[in-house]
């Protein structure tokens, strides 16, 4: 309880300090450069000055925090990748040569590529299918809500849930993992799913697909509802059947949204870490870049240089999406 009280007080203090900054800095600006009850020329001058300063009062904390937490680290990671394990002695490209020479890197790179292909595709596909079908049935909203639910579950929680699906008992013991129970029911032999090389990757990916399908579904469902009914009615009058309408009329109209969903999930996949950590910790050929990086940060006291190199690889993979996003945002703003 003592901790709860301290937590509560710190919470309130933190939030108040934040609010006080905004209130105080604005009041101060108004005090130094008053915009009222002064001769017109002075008001005009004061306003010109304070209008130039005020945006930066509003933006100040955000810019500072973004710089410290995201911008500076990107630059520093780049620097660290040329330094040794403590980040002090310069080692040139040796971290890079180590990385490109290591088996583990190729394994995690290959696995990351598998994740990148499989997860966004499967999640977007299921999302689109479910969005299309649930729009036509009366209990569609309940169905959507249930399929959306895994979004709220932590990766680690999801891992426990799925461990329970993939659980394996040898030989004649009753299986308590659902998947093996089904296999046995149909006369097959139970399998230790998460240790089967290569295929175990897919069993891990299914967990993320399970989580992300709801996200794809919600967004695609809104996009589908945004399609003007007239275009579909026109297609019906033109004699198109359901499948043709779906692929030739509906899907082309929501391409933009499908691309957004796809890239959002792709970014998430690049950062995926918790699931692998909890399910296998990279054993049995399931290593991915993010987990490898985390590993190197702490393994044997941590090797900052090697961790940073892996981080740089992840960053490089993200850059195309970043460029595409900025272009899209710019185009949108010009449209306004």
């Amino acid at each position: 309880m003592g901790q709860l009280a301290t937590a509560l007080v710190t919470m309130i203090l933190g939030v108040l300090a934040c609010a006080a900054y905004f209130y105080g800095s604005n009041a101060l600006l108004d005090l130094i450069f008053p915009g009222k009850n002064r001769p017109a020329s002075e008001i005009a001058r004061n306003l010109r000055i304070s209008n130039r300063i005020r945006p930066w009062l509003f933006l100040g904390p955000a810019v500072l925090i973004l710089t410290f937490y995201l911008f500076y680290p990107v630059v520093d990671s780049l620097r660290l990748s040329f330094f040794g394990r403590t980040g002090e002695e310069f080692v040139g490209l040796s971290n890079y040569t180590w990385l490109f020479g290591s088996e583990e890197f190729y394994e995690s790179f290959r696995n990351n590529m598998l994740w990148l292909i499989f997860v966004p595709t499967a999640a977007t596909f299921f999302g689109l299918v479910i969005a299309t079908m649930t729009d036509r049935i009366w209990w569609g909203n309940i169905a959507k809500s249930l399929i959306f639910m895994p979004m709220a579950i932590s990766f680690i929680g999801a891992s426990v849930i799925w461990k329970f699906i993939y659980d394996y008992r040898s030989g004649g013991d009753p299986q308590i993992g659902l998947l093996n129970a089904i296999v046995v029911f149909f006369g097959g032999d139970p399998q230790p799913w998460i240790t089967i090389p290569f295929w175990n990757n897919f069993f891990l990916m299914i967990i993320l697909v399970w989580i992300q399908t709801g996200f794809a579904m919600v967004i695609l469902s809104a996009a589908l509802r945004g399609i003007p009914d007239e275009t579909i009615e026109a297609a019906v009058l033109d004699g198109a059947n359901g499948v043709q309408i779906f692929f030739k009329i509906m899907v082309p109209q929501i391409w933009g949204t499908i691309a957004v969903v796809w890239t959002t999930i792709t970014i998430l996949v690049l950062k995926v870490f918790d699931i692998v950590l909890a399910m296998t910790n990279g054993q049995w050929g399931t290593q991915v870049l993010a987990n490898q990086m985390f590993d190197w940060m702490f393994r044997g006291g941590g090797d900052f240089g090697r961790g940073a190199v892996v981080a740089i690889v992840i960053m490089v993979l993200v850059i195309p999406i970043m460029v595409w996003n900025i272009k899209r945002a710019n185009a949108e703003m010009e449209g306004r």
Binding site: A40, S41, I43, A44, L47
Partner: peptide
């Protein structure tokens, strides 16, 4: 009669 080019709307 007063030049208001730089005066804010509210004034």
């Amino acid at each position: 009669g007063q030049v208001v080019n730089d005066i804010p709307p509210s004034l």
